[in-house]
Simulated scan of single mutants.
Amino acid sequence: MARFGFGKKCIAALLAVGAILAGMLVNAAPASAADPQCTTYVSNSEGLLPSTRSGVTNCWMLRGNNSDGVWALQVSLTYCYGLYVGPNGPDGDFGGNTYNALKTVQRYHGITADGGYGRQTRSVMYFYPSCT
């Protein structure tokens, strides 16, 4: 009987630990996940930085986005890094050329080359015109 009771306690403890771990996995997300999307840009001593309308520069952009924030990113990719962002130059459309150019910059700076713009990329990039 004592052995059976010990088993129930162990099973209950394992289930509790499993529930806690499952909750941690569900809530696990990159720090940038809480950041808003870049929709425009600000101009400061660092250059033209993608930002939100309220001026937050810790924001993100991905392939498929189309905004003034993408345009500012493309300007820096073009004029600071000499990279091709499309046949018409900076146009605000985060397409394949911008994606590939951003991956090149990420590799250059030794960070994860995922082709997305976020906190980590912002922290290492050079921004126009401060890069000249």
Rank of each mutant, 00 (worst) to 15 (best):
S54A: 13
H109A: 08
N58W: 03
L77N: 03
G96L: 10
Y81L: 07
S123C: 04
L15W: 04
G116F: 05
D35M: 12
G18H: 02
A33G: 04
H109E: 11
C80D: 05
A101F: 01
M24T: 09
T57H: 02
N100L: 14
G115C: 09
A12D: 07
C59D: 07
N65P: 01
Q106G: 09
S32Y: 11
T78N: 05
V56S: 08
T98P: 10
T40H: 02
V85E: 09
L77G: 02
K9Y: 12
S45K: 14
M125K: 10
L73V: 06
N97G: 01
Q120H: 06
G110S: 14
Q74F: 03
N65W: 00
I11G: 00
V26I: 15
G7P: 00
G18Q: 04
A28D: 13
V17S: 07
A72V: 08
T98Q: 10
P50G: 10
V17F: 14
L73H: 05
T40V: 02
Q120V: 11
C38H: 03
V105Y: 00
K103Y: 01
M1Y: 09
F4S: 11
N58G: 01
N100P: 02
G89N: 08
R53D: 10
C80L: 09
N88Q: 13
F4Y: 08
A2D: 14
R122P: 00
S43W: 04
A12L: 15
C38T: 06
P30V: 03
N88Y: 12
F94E: 06
N27P: 00
F6P: 00
T57Q: 08
G7F: 12
N44D: 15
S43N: 14
Y117W: 14
R119H: 06
G86D: 11
Q74E: 15
V42C: 07
S76G: 06
L102Q: 01
L14Y: 09
G86A: 09
A34Q: 14
A33Q: 13
T121W: 03
V85I: 07
M1K: 11
G5V: 12
A113K: 07
C80K: 04
A28T: 11
A2W: 13
G47A: 10
L73S: 09
L73D: 07
G23Q: 05
G96F: 07
T112S: 03
S51K: 11
A12K: 08
V17M: 14
R63A: 13
